[in-house]
């Protein structure tokens, strides 16, 4: 039924031929785009992506329609993060995503069936994830780190450099992959911040003179190789972006 929703635009062969990572990339891209169009904030989008990654990690890829899982994940994430969404909006945005330029669906029996399938799938997700659907996201950590860094940096160089925006973008984009499942939130936050600083060639003042590098202050159990591996994964997500699309 949900396959019917993307009869027009979806790529029918991707499910069979494309490697799982690419499917997940596409589906999480869908979650993010739909999330933006639904007016979702970063945290609910992150939750939806995490639910999706966690779900597909626990079940076979071809057992369920990944986009239905994604739609239900968005719906569930809205509930978890207290930014409630209407299924009608989710269906509308998804339909428009799959069949771009199409008119909104009529509110007929088929529409209500689609809606039911989202709600049913939501229950399935909850059972598969054993009702553990609240997550510690790196967002909060990252923001606190940014405040601390900001106070230690020269205010003019901070103003000149869009470190916070870049770091925020990197963090949002990181959900294309399953980083959120493999690394601690603090580590991801530090890695994102690290990459953002490097991109703009900004150094934390007196870091070389310090007893403890700044990233270790934020997380004691973090090592330089760990950061590098996360950064490498992050960069890989962007190379995947060019490969997939």
């Amino acid at each position: 039924m949900e396959g019917a929703l993307r009869d027009g635009g979806g790529n029918p062969v991707e499910g069979q031929l494309a490697p799982p990572a690419k499917v997940h990339f596409r589906v999480t891209r869908f979650i993010m785009e739909a999330g933006v169009k639904l007016g979702l904030q970063s945290i609910p989008i992150a939750t939806a992506c995490t639910i999706y990654h966690k779900f597909v990690g626990e079940s076979a890829l071809d057992a369920y329609d990944p986009y239905l899982i994604a739609m239900s994940a968005i719906y569930l994430a809205g509930k978890v993060e207290e930014q409630h969404l209407r299924t009608r909006d989710i269906i509308n945005v998804s339909n428009r995503y799959f069949n771009s330029g199409s008119e909104p669906l009529e509110l007929d029996a088929r529409f209500w069936e689609l809606r039911d399938s989202i709600v049913q799938c939501e229950l399935l997700i909850l059972r598969v994830l054993r009702f553990q659907v609240s997550f510690q996201h790196p967002h909060k950590y990252l923001l606190h780190y940014l405040i601390s860094i900001k106070n230690w940096m020269n205010r003019y160089s901070w103003q000149r450099t869009p470190i916070s925006v870049a770091a925020w973008a990197l963090l949002r984009d990181s959900y294309h992959g399953a980083l959120c499942l493999r690394f601690r939130a603090q580590h991801i936050a530090v890695a994102v911040l690290h990459l953002a600083l490097q991109v703009y060639g900004v150094e934390v003042p007196a870091d070389s003179e310090a007893e403890k590098p700044w990233w270790q202050v934020f997380s004691d159990d973090l090592t330089k190789p760990a950061i590098d591996s996360i950064v490498s994964d992050l960069v890989h997500i962007y190379t995947m972006d060019t490969q997939v699309s």
Partner: peptide
């Protein structure tokens, strides 16, 4: 808000986003 990041127009480095 304190850091000046706009959530209504969220930043991304993905071209499709």
């Amino acid at each position: 808000g304190k850091l000046g990041i706009d959530e209504s127009n969220p930043p991304s480095l993905m071209r499709g986003l």
